[in-house]
Each structure stands twice: as structure tokens, then as C-alpha cells.
Nucleic acid binder design. Structure first.
Lengths: 199, 199
DNA sequence: CTAAATAAGTGCAATGACTCAACTTTCGCA
DNA sequence: TGCGAAAGTTGAGTCATTGCACTTATTTAG
């Protein structure tokens, strides 16, 4: 009964069909556009049944985003392991910008460029991505509270967490992300500094 | 060709069926719970066809919320007609709290209490209500920008608008709304004061 | 006052995402 | 080897939402 190491052919096959589905989905969405592709089409191209598709992914939108856990870990790390002298809002601003820049860096990879364009141009996916980030609001609030020694359910920490994540949407839609981030976070940094001068 | 006064049997009938639908929906949702009621059931009780239902309401969730325009007007007014000496974040905090308190005031009306409980306990409705507020983000951002003489698309104004509306969700889920509002808005008030000392 | 324009409402079929129940196949492991 | 769990399948079904063709009532222009 091993806990680590997935071990086995079975798991590999499972991972493989999952991957086939994700690949098929991305291909089709890029070819025809998200709304022009049915769940059925994706399942067909991956050569599995629709039911199987839903055993692997919680919904149509999830076919495109395979991150989630990673995302939360990075977010928490950005706060917990921020360099000394950098405030929490600053650390969050930099983290969000970094994630944006990562996209720009891969801009030469046409796959990546097309993918981001797809997400930005499809309302359903844009919204899903935002909710995906918001899903980690609680975790972020918790780590902030820990960092400043506040109670777990402290409202200002929860507020900072939500506002910072929400700021991502603001940054995304603006042509000049850096400037947008600075202006949006100015609000949070000053406000936060007023009650937590040292963090 | 009259512009004011809707005048006419047609409009009256239309308003009536709309009302029947809203009433039927609320009754059924309270009786059985939102998810246990189909759109068909609502249409049947109001004695209209499903197609007609969708001519009156944009979706199932909309059956419960008949406000929207009013909401935006009040929000804009709260900023534009704020008493002298009160900052914009303060005005918004008070406005949101007022809307909360309005519910508490009607707490003796069992209809109202049940209604709010229904909304809070049904994820689909909770989310819809939040999106309903967020729909006025742009309008709020615009009126804030006007109030401080900033360009229409100023990022700090957009940020304040979004954060303030988003704060509503935070306030809602806390047991002590007043305190939650104070803590969440402290962030915004201090941050805003730093760059707009006089508003 | 009547006829044409307009708008409300109906019935029905279709689509598309998602679920369920009852299997069959395929591994992993004792 | 052989059993049980996990992966996958099939097929039918639910539910919100939309499009289409049609009827009926109400306006309104002439």
C-alpha cells in the first residue's frame, strides 16, 4: 500500500487518456473556437465516451486549465517567501505581474500565443480563469493572516486577499499591465501600510 | 405619441404576466428549493409557456431579482450626492451597509427573511446576485472618475469601484456586517486618501 | 371604423452540457 | 491464480435555453 509513487500501468493509462482529452480539446478549440465545439466532438477526437470525459474533467472549461493546485502553491509561496523588506501587497503585485510576463516570454511559441488569445476572447473561459484564481482566496487569506500574526478569519486579511486576486482582472484587460498594476495596488499598499506598517 | 405614461392595456397585461411569473417562481423556490424547481414548473404555475417565460426573463436566476436598473441609479447617486466632507469610499461603505440594513428592517416580514435565506443558501443565486452588482462596475468607475476629475478610464477609479463592490461579498458572509465593512473599507479609505486627500 | 402593423403568447423541436445506472474490461496485488 | 477495485462504455434521461412557425390580441394610421 504505497502512498507516494503512483506506481503502475493503470495510472499511466489514466494520465494518458486525460492528456489525450486535453490535447484534443485545445486543438479543436483553436481550430473552430470554443463555442463551436461540443463536448461530444472532443470526446470523439480523443476516442473516448462523453461520460469518460466528465470522469476526468469537472466541466467543459476545465479541459483547458490543468493548473489549479500549482497556482495555489505559488501564490502562497509568493507571500510566505517574499524577500525581506517587501510588503505583502508588493509581493502579490509582483507575483501577478510575473505570471503575466511568463506569457509574454513564451510569445514566440505560437501555441502559447494562440492559447492566451483564445482564453481572452472567450467570455466563458475568461470568467472561468478568474474564478479559478478566486478559488484560492481562502488559502491566500490564511497565509496572509499567518504572516502578520492575525487570527485566521481576520477581515482585513480576507479583504486584501480578495482585492489582490480581483486586481488581476483589472490588470489583464489593460494595455499597459505594469502601469495598471501599480495604480491598482497603490490603493492596497497604502491602505495596508496604514494598519500594518511593518509587513 | 406619448413619451411618459406607458398607457395601454397591452403594457398592463405584459406587466401582469411578468409579475405572475416572478410570484410563481418565488413561491415554488421557497416551497421546494431552487434546484428542485424546473423552469417548466414555474411557467406552469403562472399558466404561460416556457417560451414566454424566457421572453420576460433572461434566465432562471433572473426570476428572483427584479432590480438591476434601480441598483445602478442608487449606487451612482450614493457617490454623486454624498454629503460634503464624506469621502467616496466612506459613502460607498455606508451605501452598502444601508442596503444590508434594509433587509434587517424587514426582518419581521417572514417573506423577506425567507427570501434572503434562499439567496444566501443557493450558490447559483448567491453568485448571480454578486454578478448583478459587478455589472455596474463600469458605471460606478465612471461616476467616481467624474467626481475627482480624472480621465474616464483612470485605473485607480476602476480599482476602487471594483474593490468596493467586491467588498459586498465579504460583508455579506460575515456575522457582524458593520465591523466587517469597517475593516474591509479601512484598506480602501486609507489607500484612497493617500492619492486623493480631498475626496 | 377598418385594415395593416405590432407585439404577446403558444407549441414544438432541437441543442448542448451534464448525470445516472448498469454493465464490461483491465489491472494490481495478495 | 483469481478477486476486487478502478477505468471505461452505453444509453437513456434531465434541464436550461433557443429558434421557428404560428395564433391572437391590441394599436394605430388612414
Amino acid at each position: 500500500m504505497r502512498v507516494t509513487e503512483p506506481t503502475g500501468r493503470r495510472e499511466r493509462k489514466k494520465a494518458q487518456t486525460r492528456q489525450s482529452l486535453a490535447d484534443a480539446a485545445l486543438e479543436l478549440f483553436l481550430e473552430r473556437g470554443y463555442d463551436q465545439v461540443g463536448v461530444k466532438d472532443v470526446a470523439d477526437r480523443a476516442d473516448v465516451s462523453v461520460t469518460t470525459l466528465f470522469k476526468h474533467f469537472s466541466g467543459k472549461e476545465a479541459l483547458v486549465f490543468d493548473q489549479d493546485d500549482e497556482l495555489e502553491a505559488e501564490l502562497v509561496a509568493a507571500v510566505r517567501e517574499r524577500p525581506p523588506g517587501r510588503s505583502i501587497p508588493q509581493a502579490l503585485r509582483e507575483h501577478l505581474l510575473l505570471k503575466q510576463t511568463q506569457l509574454a516570454v513564451h510569445a514566440d511559441d505560437p501555441r502559447f500565443a494562440d492559447f492566451t488569445r483564445l482564453v481572452q476572447e472567450t467570455p466563458a473561459l475568461r470568467d472561468y480563469a478568474q474564478r479559478m484564481w478566486m478559488r484560492h482566496e481562502a488559502a491566500l487569506a490564511r497565509v496572509i493572516a499567518q504572516a502578520v500574526g492575525a487570527p485566521e478569519d481576520d477581515v482585513s486579511c480576507a479583504a486584501l486577499a480578495r482585492f489582490a486576486l480581483e486586481a488581476r482582472g483589472l490588470i489583464l484587460r489593460h494595455a499597459e499591465p505594469r502601469r495598471a498594476a501599480d495604480e491598482a495596488f497603490a490603493l492596497l499598499e497604502h491602505g495596508w501600510a496604514a494598519s500594518h506598517p511593518t509587513d
